[in-house]
Write a protein that binds this DNA or RNA. Structure first.
Length: 611
RNA sequence: GGCCCUAUAGUUCAACGGAUAGAACGGAAGUUUCCUAAACUUUAAAUUCAGGUUCGAUUCCUGGUGGGGCUACCA
C-alpha cells in the first residue's frame, strides 16, 4: 500500500525478458541454420544460468554443435555468439570459455523486468488451466494411535504439493483417508472396556492419545498372556492364536461387522475421541482437507468389486474360499483380496476407496502420498484395478516418499522410539521461544503477538527442515540437533522477510517516497543476482509441480533469502542518496519480500512482519 | 533367496550428462558508532569401489560392497 500511490509503471504483459531462454534457444536454432546450414531441434539446445565465477547471465553449451560446425568449440561458440549479439538487441555482450558461450543481458532489460513484475500480485503462478481436478490423498492415519513424525512428513508434503499444484493452475481436492476399522481398533476398544474404568479424554490427554494408550495396554496384556501360555507348554505360534485377549478382539471385530449396536456405539465414541485429537494436531500444523473418507464406508464397495472380478473371472477363488488375483504374468505374485472367512483386507478397502474417489471427482489424476514401504502395494493396486477394466488406474500416482529415520534407526511404536507429533511441535515452539527471548525478538510485542511469533518460528523450523529434503529420499531427524534457527533454515528465511518489512516501516517513518526510475538506472552485481533469481521463480513453481517436489521451492527461497541478505549487508537501501537507485532498491526489496512470502506459503510456512 | 530404493565434506542436505561438485551446521579467524548480528566476511574439509558408454559422468549402464524397504488370510 505504501507503493501503490506512487507507482506509475507500465502494466505488465508477458514481456520479452520473461522468455529470455526461449528467445536464446530459438535464435540459437536459427544461428545454426544460418551459419552452418543445418536444422536442429530445439531440445538439443541447452541454456543454463552462468556459473557465478564467470561473467554472464545465461550460458549456451556448444559442445553438441561442434559436429555440425566442424570447428573447435571455441570457434563455434564465437560464431554463434557473434550472430546472437548482432540479432538480439537484449544482449549486451558475450564471452567464450572453452565450449561455453556466456551471454550478458543488458541491465535495462532486467530493470524493465523488475517493473513488469512489481505490480503482479500473483507473480509466478500459472493461470487456471484444468477442468477436472487432481485428487491428492495424504495423512491417512489409523485411529488406534496418535500421529507421529512420519505423519508430519506426509502431511506437510501432501499439503504443500496441493498448494504447488494450485499455483500451477490445477484444481485440487485434498482428501484424507481414515483407517477407522479392523482388528487393531478392536484391540483398543477391548482394552478400554477391560481396564479403562470409563476413562475419558481430558485437556491433558487428548482422545487420540487416550485410545493409543489402550492400544499399547492391549499389546502389553496380550504379550503376558502369550508368555504364560508358552510356560504352559504351547509353542509361540499357538500361544499367539489362543490367548484369550486376541480371541475376544476377534469376536469384537465379528460383532462390529455384524452391526452389533453396543459395539458400534463404543466404536463411534472412541473414534470420535480420536478425531477430535487429530483435529487439534492438524490445526497446529496448519493442515486441512476438503474431504475425509473412512474405510468403514469404502470396504463394502471393495468387497463388491472383488465379487465383480470373480464373476468376470479376472480373480479366482481357492478351495478354502479365499479370493486371489494372479499377477504372476505381470511379474508379481498372487495377491489375496478376500480372506477365507470372507472378511476384507487392506487391498480390498483400497480398491473400494479408489473407485469411490474416481466416481466422486472423475479426477485427471489420483495422487496418493504414501511412504515408499508401500511401493509394492501400489503396483498391485493398479494392476488389480486394471484387471477389473478400470483404465483410470493409469491415472493413479503413488507419491512415494522416504522414511524419516532417527539416529537410533527406524521409528518403532513397540519399542517406544516414535517421535510424537504433538510433542515435537511443542518442543519446536518452546525452543523458538527460549532462543527468541534470549535474543530479544519479542520486544515491543504483547503477549499474544509474541506467542504467535514463536509459534510461527518454531513451525517454520520444523516444516522447512522436512520439506527441504527431496521427498523421494529417506531423511534423518535428530531431535537433539535438527532444531536449528540459523543458516539454511525456515527462521533464516523468515528473518530476511522481517528485515524487508522493517525497511518499509522505516521508509514510511522517514517519509521516503518512490520515484519512477529510468531503465538505465545502474544495478550492481548483487541486485542483478536477485533479479535473476526472481526471474526464475515461475520456472521453479512449474518444475516443483511437475516433479511434486516442495524441496525445489524450499531450496529456491533459501537461495533468494541468502542473496538478499548479502545485498542488504553490502548496500544501503533507504539510506541510499540517489533517488533513482533508492527507489529501485526499494522495489527490488518489496518484490523479494513478496516472493519469499509466496514461496513460503507454498510450503505452508507463515512469515512474520517482525522478528 | 527374489524384487525395489539408496550411497556426496565430521554431520544434515544441494547439483536437466556440462566449466573449478554447491550450501548449512560443527571447526578456525574476523565484522556492530551504519536500514534488525536468528545477519555478513575469510578459511580447512567430500562424489563407496571396479569397469563401461560419451567430446564430457556425482548423474546413464554392468558388477562388487555398505545401508534401507518390500516379499502376511497386518495396515
Amino acid at each position: 500500500m505504501f507503493f501503490e500511490k506512487n507507482h506509475n509503471f507500465v502494466p505488465c504483459k508477458v514481456s520479452k525478458q520473461m522468455m529470455m531462454e526461449d528467445l536464446l534457444i530459438d535464435y540459437t536454432v536459427k544461428a545454426i541454420e544460418v551459419i552452418y546450414k543445418q536444422v536442429i531441434s530445439k531440445d538439443t539446445v541447452a541454456i543454463q544460468r552462468t556459473r557465478k565465477d564467470f561473467e554472464g547471465d545465461f550460458t549456451l553449451v556448444v559442445f553438441p554443435f561442434t559436429k555440425i560446425s566442424r570447428k573447435s568449440p571455441e570457434q563455434t561458440a564465437e560464431d554463434i555468439g557473434h550472430y546472437l549479439k548482432s540479432i538480439l538487441k537484449e544482449i549486451y555482450s558475450y564471452n567464450v570459455v572453452k565450449g561455453f558461450l556466456n551471454i550478458s543481458i543488458k541491465h535495462r532489460v532486467w530493470v524493465q523486468f523488475l517493473k513488469d513484475i512489481s505490480t503482479k500480485e500473483d507473480y509466478g503462478y500459472a493461470t487456471n488451466n484444468s477442468t477436472s481436478p487432481i485428487v491428492i490423498e495424504y495423512s491417512s492415519p489409523n485411529t488406534n494411535k496418535p500421529l507421529h513424525l512420519g505423519h508430519i512428513r506426509n502431511n506437510l508434503l501432501g499439503w504443500s504439493i496441493a498448494e504447488i499444484l494450485k499455483a500451477n493452475g490445477k484444481k485440487v481436492v485434498k482428501v484424507n483417508l481414515v483407517n477407522d476399522r479392523g482388528i487393531h481398533i478392536c484391540k483398543s476398544m477391548l482394552a478400554w472396556q477391560l481396564f479403562g474404568n470409563e476413562e475419558e479424554p481430558t485437556e491433558n490427554l487428548k482422545g487420540d492419545k487416550l485410545v493409543g494408550k489402550y492400544y499399547v495396554a492391549f499389546d502389553k496384556a496380550y504379550k503376558e498372556e502369550i508368555k504364560s501360555l508358552i510356560n504352559k507348554g504351547l509353542t509361540e505360534e499357538e500361544a499367539a492364536k489362543k490367548a484369550p485377549l486376541i480371541i475376544k478382539a476377534q469376536e469384537l471385530l465379528l460383532k462390529w461387522e455384524a452391526g452389533d449396536a453396543e459395539t458400534i456405539a463404543l466404536w463411534k465414541k472412541m473414534n470420535n475421541w480420536v478425531y477430535a485429537g487429530f483435529d487439534l494436531t492438524y490445526k497446529k500444523l496448519g493442515i486441512d482437507f476438503d474431504k475425509t473418507y473412512y474405510e468403514s464406508e469404502t470396504y463394502l464397495l471393495g468387497k463388491k468389486l472383488v465379487e465383480e472380478g470373480l464373476k468376470n473371472k479376472v480373480y479366482a477363488k481357492k478351495e478354502d474360499g479365499s479370493v486371489w488375483a494372479d499377477l504372476t504374468t505381470d511379474g508379481l505374485d498372487e495377491k489375496l483380496l478376500l480372506r477365507s472367512d470372507g472378511t476384507s483386507v487392506y487391498m480390498t478397502q483400497d480398491i473400494g476407496t479408489a473407485q469411490l474417489r474416481y466416481d466422486d471427482y472423475q479426477a485427471e489424476k489420483l495422487i496418493y502420498v504414501v511412504g515408499n514401504e508401500q511401493n509394492y502395494h501400489f503396483d498391485v493396486l493398479k494392476l488389480v484395478l486394471k484387471k477389473l477394466g478400470r483404465e483410470w488406474a493409469n491415472n493413479i500416482f503413488h507419491l512415494s516418499y522416504g522414511m524419516v529415520e532417527l539416529p537410533e534407526g527406524k521409528m518403532k511404536s513397540r519399542e517406544g522410539t516414535v517421535v510424537d507429533a504433538d510433542d515435537l511441535i511443542k518442543e519446536m515452539i518452546d525452543v523458538a521461544k527460549k532462543k527468541g527471548e534470549e535474543l530479544g525478538k519479542a520486544e515491543g510485542l504483547n503477549n499474544e503477538e509474541s506467542e504467535l511469533l514463536f509459534k510461527q518460528i518454531g513451525l517454520a523450523a520444523l516444516k522447512y527442515f522436512i520439506l527441504k529434503v527431496d521427498p523421494k529420499k529417506n531423511m534423518m531427524f535428530n531431535p537433539e540437533e535438527s532444531i536449528d534457527f540459523n543458516g539454511n533454515t525456515g527462521p533464516f528465511i523468515q528473518y530476511t522477510y522481517a528485515r524487508i518489512q522493517s525497511i518499509f516501516r522505516k521508509a514510511k517513518e522517514n517519509n521516503i517516497h518512490l520515484v519512477e526510475f529510468p531503465n538505465d538506472t545502474a544495478i550492481n552485481d548483487k541486485e542483478k543476482e536477485i533479479l535473476l533469481l526472481l526471474y526464475e521463480y515461475p520456472k521453479i513453481i512449474k518444475e516443483a509441480g511437475e516433479t511434486y517436489s516442495p524441496a525445489l521451492i524450499a531450496n529456491y527461497v533459501y537461495e533468494l533469502a541468502k542473496e538478499y541478505n548479502q545485498f542488504y549487508h553490502d548496500h544501503p537501501i533507504i539510506k541510499e542518496e540517489f533517488g533513482n537507485v533508492r527507489s529501485l532498491r526499494l522495489v527490488l526489496s518489496e518484490k523479494t519480500g513478496k516472493v519469499i512470502k509466496s514461496a513460503m506459503h507454498l510450503l505452508g510456512i507463515e512469515v512474520p512482519e517482525q522478528m
